[in-house]
Amino acid sequence: MKPGYTIERATRASRIAGLLSLVVVAALIAAPWWAGRANMRLLGEVYAFLALASLWNLLAGFTGLVSVGQQAFVGLGGYALFAASIFYGVPPLLAVVLSGFVGALVALPLAPILFRLQGAYFAIGTWVAAEVFRLTFAQVSALGGGSGTSLPARIVTDIASTRDAREMIVYWSALALGLGTVAVIYVVLRSRAGLALTAIRDSEIASESLGVNIARTKLVLYVVTAALTTMTGALIFLQKLRISPDAAFSVNDWTAYVIFMVVIGGIGTIEGPIVGTLIFFLLRETLSDLGTIYLMLLGAVAILVMLKAPKGLWGLFSAATGVTLFPLRRRVVSTDAR
C-alpha cells in the first residue's frame, strides 16, 4: 500500500473539546434560568473581560503592538453609548453596535500617529491618547463633566420594560459579544491575513520579503481591535448604567487587569486569554478581600510568569500534553496510522 498523508488542523483533543464547549455554551445561554441575578452580573463581566483580553492578545501576541491604552476605546464606547442614547435617542443595543464604528473612525487617524513610536514607546503613546480622551470627556458638561452621569431611566426601560427581561437581554448581548469576539479572532487567525500576522510576529523582515504588507496589516488589526474594544466598552457601561471619565478611562480596570489575564493565561494563543480570564476572576472572587495585598500578588504573579513561563499557564499545559483547543497550524498526518 502506498503511504498516504493528509494535512489537517483539527486534533483529537480539539474535537472532544469542541463538543464539550458546545455543552458549556448551551449551559451559559440558559444561565438566566439557573443562575441568580448576582451570578449573571458576574458572568456578564467575565464575558466583557474575555473579549478585552482576547482583543489585547490579538494586538500584542500576534502583531507585537503592545498597548497600555486600550482603555481609550473602552471609555470611548461607554461615552458613545451614553451620548447616542441621551442626545439622539438611539436604542441602547443599537448604540452598542454603532459605537464599534465610532471606535474604528477614531482609531483610523490615531493609528498612523501612534505608529511613529516604536515598541514600548508606542505603549506609552497609547496611554497618552487615552489620557487625552479622559481629560476631554471631563470637559463635556452635557455628559456630567468630571463627575460623570447616569443613564436616564427612560433609556434603561427602552431596552425592556421589566428588570428581569432587561438583565437577560444585556446578559445575552455580553455572551454574544464575548464568544463572538473569540470566534472572530479565531477566523481572522485562520485566514490568509492570520498567517500574515503570525509571519509578522515571527520575523518582520522575512514577511516583508514574502510580500506581506506589514504596515497595512498592523493598521487593519489595530482598527478592528479598536472597534471591538469600543463595542465591549459600550456594553460594559450598559451593564453599569453609570459613567465617569475616571471609571471609563481607567488604566487599571481596562488594561492592567487585561494584561494580567493574557500574561497568566498565555500570550499569543487563543486559549491563553480564556484561561487567564477564568483564573483572574477565580482569584478576584476568592482573594479580593485582601485589597492592596491582592493587587501586589497579581503584579508579582505576572512578573513571575513573564520570567519563568513566558508562554503562560496554557503554554505550560499545552507543552506538557500537546493539547490545543483552537488549532491554528496545520499538521501533516500519515493516513496509514488509522
Partner: peptide, 18 residues
C-alpha cells in the same frame, strides 16, 4: 519587547499598592 515591558508594568502595580 514584551518581557521588560510587562515586568516593569507588574512592578508599577506592586509599588503603587505597596
Amino acid at each position: 519587547l514584551l518581557a521588560p515591558l510587562l515586568v516593569t508594568f507588574g512592578l508599577s502595580i506592586i509599588i503603587q499598592n505597596g
